[in-house]
Design a protein around this nucleic acid. Structure first.
Lengths: 215, 215
DNA sequence: GCTTGAATCATACGAACGTTTCAATCAGTC
DNA sequence: GACTGATTGAAACGTTCGTATGATTCAAGC
């Protein structure tokens, strides 16, 4: 008797293999082998490979979104007279992802690597599958950024949010760095979070072309 | 009669399709169709799919590396008493990539998207293929960063370089953003460059956990 | 104008793919 | 303990993959 039921075993194996071997690089047969289930059971429980993939994402993203909104809510409710701390807003967005990335079971690292792949995937369908799941939360944080960085144009805030998301996705994803081996992520999640927040807050405060000491 | 020779047509079609449809998602048959060449000519000219991919990368990366080193050379030779401008070092690294990204032919945008995919690819072979091509230049810039950000530990400089590379790779790659459609990259390459330099310089100057106004 | 080597062609190979089918098994109910 | 619906099993479907093969075409040298 297996320790968990078939759909869960399929989801676990899929998350692991999609993450480790790429979205297009994994066959259903490989998944069934890893999960120790029959080939037909994937179609029985999930209907298709695409739908299986969607469920793999939803399982992690929905709790992530809920946690982000909850943290943002406390930040917003504590904000004096409409002004929010940029660091607090960034931390509300990043902390759940960072802590997931470092979770004990290792599933967070797998999922983070998967996210990195998804947002660089050329397939519009795959990207929009994921972006849809993040849309509502993204819009809420974008508007919170308006209260944390008053005076910026909508376009500047979008660019800042875009860079923030991309930088975090890159930093938290598994692949190694250009120099040496492995990802230079700190061992401690709270230090990683603090570094990311400080890096990104400084970047977002920098005022584009017209600032800096020039080259 | 085709306007270019067979190997070049294969390289052009491969760059386009690898970029638009993913590294694993493109078949040699699809490439031969796009390039209007015979299936066997790929193995005749390139030996294997993997070697074809390597040549696609080399064709763009080698000029990119040369340009970066040349720019860094002028920055270093102008540096007074061993101290370098952080913005100047960052610009030497980023400018060639940004200008390539915006090149008239559109090949730069394809290549940038390809780079984004590669560094999030779970296949260690594929990543190391690319990182090897960047290794020498990365080490040179890492040491230049030491002269632009004196007092930082080796580990902090690596982390900064890592984030810089990832942020730029994400910003310059093609895929759309989480909000709205399309990449919020500015239309003007020089503005994109200035924004990236200012964002990243500010981020790299921020001093990790111990700084910032806290959350 | 025949020879030669590079280049291109149509075709075939075995393997692996996502999906489908239908029989076998299982748990729960009367 | 037969019935029933949910689940699992083994096998096969047609398609596509990277690669290999051997004939054919072509330009250049003599």
């Amino acid at each position: 008797m297996p320790q968990t039921n078939t759909p869960t075993r399929i989801l676990d194996a899929s998350e692991k293999l999609f993450s480790e071997e790429g979205l297009q690089g994994v066959s259903l047969r490989r998944i069934t082998k890893e999960a120790d289930v029959n080939l037909a059971s994937i179609h029985y429980h999930f209907g298709s490979k695409e739908n299986l993939f969607r469920r793999v994402l939803e399982r992690r993203i929905e709790p992530l979104n809920a946690e982000r909104l909850e943290l943002l809510g406390t930040v917003e409710s504590g904000g004096a007279q409409g002004v929010l701390s940029l660091e607090a807003v960034l931390e509300a967005f990043l902390a759940p992802a960072v802590r997931l990335r470092y979770n004990r079971s290792g599933t967070g690292a797998l999922f983070s690597a998967l996210m990195g792949q998804i947002f660089q995937n050329p397939d519009t369908e795959i990207r929009s599958l994921a972006t849809k799941m993040f849309r509502e939360v993204s819009l809420r944080f974008l508007s919170a950024l308006g209260r944390a960085l008053p005076g910026r144009s909508e376009e500047e805030r979008r660019w800042g949010f875009h860079l923030m998301f991309g930088t975090a996705a890159f930093a938290l994803s598994a692949p190694g760095s250009l120099i040496g081996d492995g990802n230079p992520l700190p061992d401690d999640p709270e230090e990683a979070l603090a570094r990311l927040v400080s890096f990104l807050a400084a970047g977002m405060r920098s005022h584009g072309p017209s600032q800096g000491e020039g080259a």
